[in-house]
Design a protein around this nucleic acid. Structure first.
Lengths: 158, 158
DNA sequence: TGATAATTGTTCTACTATATAACAATTTGG
DNA sequence: CCAAATTGTTATATAGTAGAACAATTATCA
């Protein structure tokens, strides 16, 4: 009676864990890859205490000095309400400054400070190194271009 | 005196906004693509009130019934502390149930309820439709495979 | 022109996702 | 058997994001 019916086909075979049901999903793998890339980015910028949103903001201001807050925010997909604190942070660190343009006194024009210009040169270098690392992981510039092209197809054209 | 010095080289040429400095970054485009794909996923599952984490949890439980909470959580990259509320939600909706295995009374084994089994069949169909949509956007199954391969190269092998 | 609508920055609030610490119950390993 | 590790859980803190409301200003257009 205490026989545990000794497994007619003797196969303990500890069942494996199946992850394909999620890892085969484009969106799932996209997210995992994005999280990992961002974690590496954050690690590389840890000594500079710069988050991805900070870097992309500085980069856009550098490329478009005098832009309004809402222009930078919109380009980054950040709500203008949430963008206020981000700019406050960069301003209090002396990297960015707000100036009121005479032609539209509702808006704030954003500029890098001299210190901000110095710093973004450093940041751009860190970013370029990291980008090179990503390209290496992907298997070269051609693979990177292919990835960028495929990701672009997923993005809304507007 | 009210002459606006009529622009020697007559070119008002309203300056364009340069976004290349960020859109050319692998991580940035990866994130934008991921956000968009997730938004579409959420929209498709809106009537079912199911978030990506909910679906992937159900899918993993379906593929691995009786798994411990921590096994599912770890596979999804979710901290076990945060996984508790997620399972509570699925359990209160009658989709999942916790059972205490006799061999390890610390852990909770996760199973789909009969209702959960019914529902995930529906969810899997919605997901399959969405996946087909993504593949179409990418340009076909070959393009999808290429994307999955490239994303895989960015992921840590472990 | 003047009333109305729209824009911009801002504050406040709320919700989701995530990270850490601590704890009890239990199991594991010397 | 005792110490260490594991599991689920609670509590807490922090980012990121979304919406409403507001004042100041600018744009629209009848």
């Amino acid at each position: 009676m205490d026989e545990q019916h000794p497994a007619p086909r003797a196969k303990p075979a500890r069942r494996r864990f199946h992850t394909d049901v999620v890892t085969d999903i484009v969106g799932y793998r996209l997210r995992r890859a994005q999280i990992q890339v961002f974690q590496q980015f954050i690690a590389r910028f840890a000594t500079h205490d710069l988050r991805p949103a900070d870097y992309s903001t500085l980069a856009l201001i550098e490329a478009n000095p005098g832009s309004k807050q809402i222009e930078i925010a919109r380009a980054l997909g950040i709500k203008r309400a949430n963008f206020v604190a981000l700019i406050n942070g960069l301003e209090s660190r002396g990297l960015v400054e707000r100036r009121q343009p005479a032609n539209d006194r509702r808006s704030q024009a954003l500029y890098l400070t001299p210190h901000g210009i110095e710093q973004i040169a450093v940041f751009n270098k860190v970013q370029a190194d990291f980008e090179a690392h990503c390209i290496e992981r992907l298997g070269g510039p051609a693979a990177r271009d292919q990835l960028m092209e495929l990701l672009g197809r997923l993005l809304d054209e507007e």
